[in-house]
Simulated scan of single mutants.
Amino acid sequence: MARYSPEHKEATRRRMIETAGRRFKSDGIDGSGIATLVADAGLTNGAFYGHFASKDDLVASVVTQQLTDQVAVVDGLPAGLASVEAFLRDYLSPAHRDDPAGGCPSAALLDEIGRCGEATRQTYTDGARSMIEAITRHLAAGGTDGADERAIGILTLLVGSLQLARAVTDAELSDRILAAAYTQAITIAGARPGPATTLTQESP
């Protein structure tokens, strides 16, 4: 039997987490069976259990990685309100709305995460806290008061607005939801709207 290097095993695990993340966000956690998840990654059921104890284990790993990647995007932006504005514009864009698989894990999975086990909910809690802290750092750098409370308000507004914009069948209403949410989020942030800016990474 072939023996794989630790690097190969880690690359395989990472591929599984990445493909599962897209599948979960497009089809839902409950709507994604192990057979589909391993097929997406080009693996077999046996290979899956060589990396994860269960589907729940994979879900927790996906949530951790998705939020880590999202926080890295925000942390990687130059400190200040201009970066908050750029992030808000990108997050509340029609392109993000129309690409659940490549977008925010919270907007795509929050309702299901709330019904997951303690381990997954704890990883989500840790990730959400890190996201709030990342936004807070930008707000604080911009000199706004109560940066932490504003960050919580912004994150809550972003996630709920994107979920609503995706749920409605009226395209015009969906666009208005995104536009209104952007205006309110900018107000909370205390930033001034600037020219359109697109983040360089796939997931906002």
Rank of each mutant, 00 (worst) to 15 (best):
V62T: 06
L77E: 15
R121M: 09
T123Y: 05
L67D: 00
G117D: 15
A79E: 12
Q65H: 12
L139I: 08
A41R: 00
S130P: 01
K25Y: 04
D57N: 12
A47R: 05
P78R: 06
M131E: 01
R89K: 12
D90V: 09
G114V: 06
A134G: 06
G103E: 03
H51K: 04
G42L: 11
G76F: 11
I135L: 15
I113S: 01
P105E: 06
Q66R: 02
L77R: 05
G102I: 00
Q122H: 15
H51Y: 09
S54W: 14
L67S: 01
A41E: 05
C104M: 04
G102N: 00
Q66P: 00
T68V: 07
P94D: 08
A107G: 06
D75S: 14
G102Q: 00
L37Y: 02
A82F: 11
G76N: 11
Q65C: 09
E85W: 09
H96V: 14
A86G: 13
G114I: 04
V63W: 00
Q66W: 01
F24V: 03
A39M: 10
R89G: 07
Q70K: 07
R97I: 05
A107S: 14
A39Y: 06
T125R: 15
R115G: 05
Q70L: 10
T120R: 02
L67E: 01
G76D: 11
A47P: 05
R115V: 04
T123D: 08
T68P: 00
S83M: 11
G80F: 13
V62W: 03
D75P: 05
R121C: 05
P105C: 10
Q66A: 02
C116F: 09
T123L: 07
T44N: 12
A72I: 09
D111L: 13
T64H: 05
E112R: 09
L109Q: 01
I29S: 02
Q122C: 04
A82N: 12
R97S: 06
I135V: 14
R97M: 04
A95M: 12
Q65G: 08
A60R: 02
A141S: 13
T123N: 07
T68D: 09
L58N: 02
